[in-house]
Amino acid sequence: MAHSLEQNKFHLHYQPQVDIKTGALLGVETLIRWHHPRLGLISPAEFIPIAEQTGLIVPMGYWVLQQSCLQYQRWLSQGIPPFKLSVNLSLRQLQETNLISEIKNIVSQTKINCQQITLEVTESLMLCEPGETIHHLNQLNDMGIQIAIDDFGVGYSSLSYLKDLPLQTLKIDKSFLDDLLTREKNQVILQTIIELGHRLGLKIIAEGVESSEQLAVLKSMDCDYGQGYLFSRPLTDQDATALFRTSSFLDSRPLATV
């Protein structure tokens, strides 16, 4: 895996995030893909946990951010309007003492506007030293980078950190949408999360939107944004470029301020 990273055997795909009410494009989330020369396409579900355990997720995470920012600048140079670029920040990266300097270097090298970057972190970040985690996230936020909690509602959910972390966005885990149409409890929980987020001044993204019926429910609940196969599968940079050329874009200013 380390050799593949050094040899640029990993590739990036981009999944659109859209405004649920209008269909306008908010931005894209960067997703890493690995096509092994012998084993073929390897799922991120298989190699990401190994990267986490071995520590390779740290250089991998910085590589993803750097390449995403470079691609973003290529899109701007082609006349694509500014949009939100979401990139995952791993738990291991958050524990790195040089996290902020590494990200500042990437921002400086790629000349990207920090306000167009959203870093997505999972709820498990609170398993770290909370004080250090909050300090790092506040430093990133002070740079203008937006922070999103990914897979909200599962794992180590805690309402306590919502008041302490510099968040702008909650991403609702796909599991709440899987049975959305058949389980009333899922609807109640989803509505509660959306209302809570809005009261805290946060924007809500629903992950895993796959049907028009799910979309209709999310609209009725006043969910802000959606991501999933109903809108688009993850795209190569070429396919994303083609999509951008035919899309309307939301204003790319920061999603919210708390």
Rank of each mutant, 00 (worst) to 15 (best):
N141C: 14
E210Y: 03
K174M: 14
I117E: 02
I20Q: 07
D222P: 00
A148W: 06
Q73M: 11
N98V: 01
H198C: 05
M221S: 03
I134R: 04
A256S: 15
Q17A: 11
Y229D: 01
E102Y: 05
N141V: 09
T118K: 04
L215R: 04
L170K: 03
P166F: 10
A45C: 12
L12T: 07
N138K: 15
V18Q: 02
L89F: 02
S86M: 11
K203D: 04
L119W: 07
L230W: 04
C128A: 15
N98A: 09
Q115T: 12
L25H: 06
L218E: 08
H35A: 04
M143R: 00
I205G: 06
L170E: 12
Q78I: 06
N186K: 04
S175W: 06
Y161R: 15
T133F: 01
L127W: 01
V28R: 00
P82R: 13
L127F: 08
Q187D: 03
L119H: 15
S43P: 03
T97I: 08
I42K: 10
G55M: 06
L25Y: 06
Q227L: 05
F231E: 10
V217Y: 05
T110G: 08
R33N: 02
H198F: 07
A240L: 15
Q15P: 02
E6F: 03
T241A: 12
H11D: 13
T110Q: 09
Q73T: 10
Q238R: 14
L162E: 03
L85E: 00
A51Q: 00
I117R: 00
I205P: 07
